[in-house]
Design a protein around this nucleic acid. Structure first.
Lengths: 344, 344
DNA sequence: GCCCTTCGTGCAATCGTTTGCGCCCACGGG
DNA sequence: CCCGTGGGCGCAAACGATTGCACGAAGGGC
């Protein structure tokens, strides 16, 4: 005896164009046209009647079927390292909002910064015949963008840039400069950097802008003062611990991500020092929570919402076959309590 | 003259079953079978040849077309209030991981706790013919679950529960009790609650468990000591400010969400008090960042990963037509520096 | 009164996949 | 030698929506 497979409860047959057509006593093509955005070549009364009927019957367009015919899924894919990174979550939110305002849906994929996983997820996206991709997790040496280009799928990089590809980012080098200038003006000379992932343009450029500025001022940073890390709170803790254990620990720390700064706060506290008073601290991205921390965090703000919106615009242009130019948004330094004037 | 519409650059025609069939000199149905998980009724050599060819040609199954035929999109929809709420982002991450391990894709929709917006997003999901829905943003009096049930779409509630619907949650009432007991043992008698959204079962039950426990101990909370709020850092700040401005401000605060606690830290500091030493604080969910804050946060932990995984299991069971039971996970109190022993 | 538009609608092909059914051939047994 | 069997494969019909084309009727100009 074959084991009895549990049969899924019969879902009521969904109402299709044919259902509506039968009720309206017209052909399905007429229904299709009547329901389209601008019903051309159909009598005004028919349009009204069909639309009403469709509403009553609870007709819902089958996007999959429509996409099969039209060749467009009206879906865009979004690649992010992880959504638990608040920064990417914010960007994704605005991407989703902008896309759905333009009539597109979005599908997001966590790539966990793992190449194999990433490929699998992208494959799944392409299987859904997405119309374009927004890449929020590009790495130095990453080939995905190249592949997309050669296979003709429109794409845009957001947040992290890559030489030779369309991108919407903020000027991270400049952001690093801003942080450095601020610390220099306050009189800091021995400083540390929690540098994030150096394969990501964000970590790299912010660090570079910062280092170069200190260098030009005559205070180059010794290598041990720059610690690589992931982009999470726990790894901020670990990195800052290293800095605090240095023979001459820095009087100020620049973390290239607010969550790293948050972790650093823990390490500074553990080292028996007070954030702000004993060790100055600057974060990056100016997340909501930066302002409300026990000691409000000085941070370099980047406009995440705007980045998301602009990346969608750029992608949509690409999908329509129009050219779009890369965008570089200006960062802004928001000074708060973690970088008080030095009391000498 | 009609304005020249920019024609999208001709995307190379994607390779379909027909393409592979032509190269392999077999019928498309043979290719389809050869490529299926267990190719039955097809010669082993043919299977091999076809698969190889498919790989070489870069064949990718068109999920939309397949779904049209099979009636299943292998897609599940996820409704969350917002992804910038770290808690929901964590749950979604584990949902996505579990789903994709089971061969399903996920589509997430931010509902922003706005009914109209929510309906629009759900409609879009249903238009994609999703196989089921995981609801992470249910509200008291919410009708979406009812509608899904009557339209026969499988669904599961996660994080927030609703009487009479399948759900995977943690025991929030118990969590509130744990927090209360801890504060009582430390000797706190005048306490405040940042209660979150009372239409969400999380906010409601955590608050209720907490209040009841204080009540049974003989220290009922006056109403002004319980402040409703959203679930974000800024609204935690506002709520805590109210508490701090009370004629007799509380010696301890229970925030039903870590981000609220984070905001509360800001307000406590602004009121000229020190977190932990002057005002004890308990959060909820035990996010990563709780442990690494300048003053590590005592928090009630709920196992977000597990909730996500279990909700997928339950939904998949529902999709297969099997019955599933609601799950109630136990919370756990993690004591840290924000609730030190009272020095009398 | 005839022809040519124009409008409103129906017809049918098409997108890519899956799957029940039937055909052909080889093989083995009687 | 014949027939039954079954493995291996092709055929064609779906699934639901879109869209170029054709067709019929109405209307206007001559």
């Amino acid at each position: 005896m074959k084991e009895n497979p549990v049969t899924p409860p019969a879902r009521p047959r969904p109402v299709t164009l044919a259902t509506v057509a039968r009720h309206a006593q017209v052909h399905v093509s007429t229904v299709s046209r009547a329901l389209s955005a601008d019903p051309v070549g159909i009598g005004a009364d028919t349009v009204l009647r069909v639309r009403e009927l469709a509403a009553v019957l609870g007709y819902r367009r089958n996007e999959g079927a429509a996409g099969l015919r039209t060749g467009s899924s009206r879906l865009i894919g979004v690649l992010v390292p992880r959504l638990t990174d608040l920064v990417l979550a914010s960007i994704y939110e605005s991407i989703d909002a902008a896309a759905s305002a333009a009539g597109y849906g979005t599908v997001v994929a966590n790539t966990l910064d793992d190449p194999e996983h990433r490929r699998a997820r992208l494959d799944a996206l392409l299987s859904r015949r997405i119309d374009g991709v927004i890449i929020g997790d590009s790495h130095l040496g990453d080939t995905v963008a190249h592949e997309l280009r050669s296979s003709g799928v429109p794409y845009v990089l957001v947040m992290r840039k890559l030489e030779g590809h369309l991108s919407v980012t903020t000027d991270d080098y400049r952001g690093g400069q801003l942080a450095a200038q601020h610390l220099l003006e306050l009189g800091h000379r021995r400083v540390g950097v929690i540098a994030g992932d150096q394969l990501a343009s964000t970590g790299r450029e912010r660090t570079l802008g910062f280092r170069r500025t200190f260098e030009s001022a005559g205070y180059p940073l010794p290598d041990p003062c720059v610690v690589e890390s992931a982009f999470s709170t726990p790894s901020g803790l670990v990195a800052a611990e290293k800095l605090m254990r240095l023979p001459e620990p820095p009087s100020a720390v620049f973390a290239v991500h607010d969550l790293l700064a948050l972790g650093a706060m823990g390490a500074i506290r553990d080292a028996g020092k007070r954030v702000g008073e004993d060790v100055a601290l600057i974060g990056y991205n100016d997340l909501d929570l930066a302002a409300t921390l026990p000691v409000p965090l000085t941070s370099v703000r980047s406009d995440l919402q705007r980045m998301g919106t602009l990346s969608v615009e750029a992608l949509l242009a690409g999908i329509k076959g129009q050219a779009a130019a890369s965008v570089l948004l200006p960062p802004e330094l928001i000074v708060r309590a973690t970088t008080p004037p030095l009391q000498v």
